[in-house]
Design a protein around this nucleic acid. Structure first.
Lengths: 204, 204
DNA sequence: ACATATCCTGACCGTTTGGTCAGGTTTCCT
DNA sequence: AGGAAACCTGACCAAACGGTCAGGATATGT
């Protein structure tokens, strides 16, 4: 059939990988297509063989950056054998340990947020991400309430929103001023404090 | 002395105001200096009479956007007559009612956050803003603890961080997907829930 | 009236950069 | 061997845009 072996999957990955590094280093605007081509060890023309435009390349990165988190949460939700508080703790730990090694990439995330501020494909994608994240987290909480492992008077949706907001807020504060807070310690402390407010009241 | 009346203050304000609107509409990158000049009803050359460069103009907006919040909090901290929980409630209400009418301007804030992701004057300024905000809020909490109006076992710095993070996170989620959440109701509910965790335990 | 500092204009320029394209090269199939 | 589809290159282009500047205009003090 094809007169040449299909390398498009590898090439796309190679380009996305290079783009990720270059965008992280210089930002969407200051990064030139030539930079990405050089970083990937390819010619600029080839970038346009695989991606319609710079914007298309940027949008393709959305999936790369945001999908993994959802996968993590889905896995956690399906792991019904373990108690909910334990799984919530792991969620917090996961979020933190995703943050730390990917610190260099975080600037890209915030450029996406800035884009998501206005209507467009990026906004749509990130809205969908948050919607799904809140759904999954609320479902996890609902599971905990039904099992009696969390307070019965909890509003799952509202609580999920609160937790997500706190994650996002802390990440933002840390990225902007890493030396202003001891992220590992304070993340853990805040998560633990929040978790305590979710547990059913116990007679002292 | 001066052969002409000094209009520099008004002109600067006029330019900053126009810049704010244009940047909010189009973003830092897509907004052209010509757009701003037109919006202000001035010539492009004049922009460069009052501001060294486009970047300088952008940086000047930092103060315009972030100072008012600090003023609010300072005022609240100085208002020592009123009980702390009441003042915290007002803080939450203020934050919300700043958000709503300024929704159109919020995109700028997130562009600043994206910039603050990398070292530079914007990062410095926003770091300073957050540092100050956390200090003031922690001080307010400390006041409440000393007065016995808040739990004695509270860590003021950590709690301040948690509250600020939740504010920021909620604002982010709302800006990106306004139709995904009922900000007024959920903000209020989350703030009230958080506040309850700060109050001293009362015998039921 | 005149000098002068400040304020203001808009045509112009140099550079930057996303995107294109004509022209390869490689591998497989017949 | 030869054709064809896929893959790849890098010089080139046109538009956009930040910034400049020569040349005014205007109000004030003398």
């Amino acid at each position: 059939m094809s007169p040449r072996p299909d390398v498009s999957a590898e090439r796309k990955a190679q380009i996305l990988d290079a783009a990720l590094r270059v965008f992280a280093r210089k930002g969407f605007h200051k990064a030139r297509m030539d930079d990405i081509a050089q970083e990937a060890g390819l010619s600029k023309g080839l970038l346009y063989w695989y991606f319609r435009s710079k914007d298309a390349l940027i949008e393709a990165l959305l999936t790369v950056l945001f999908e993994p988190d959802l996968r993590d949460l889905e896995r956690l939700l399906a792991d019904t054998a373990r108690p909910i508080p334990e799984r919530l703790r792991e969620l917090a730990r996961n979020a933190l340990s995703t943050l730390l090694p990917y610190r260099d990439l975080m600037p890209i995330v915030y450029e996406f947020y800035a884009l998501a501020t206005r209507p467009g494909p990026v906004q749509k994608a990130i809205q969908a991400y948050y919607r799904r994240y809140r759904q999954l987290l609320a479902q996890l909480l609902r599971q905990g309430i039904q099992r009696g492992e969390l307070r019965a008077d909890l509003d799952p949706e509202l609580t999920a929103l609160g937790i997500l907001a706190q994650f996002e807020g802390l990440a933002l504060l840390w990225i902007i001023g890493p030396e202003e807070l001891d992220i590992e310690h304070q993340w853990e402390a805040i998560a633990e404090h929040t978790l305590r407010t979710l547990l059913p009241p116990t007679a002292p």
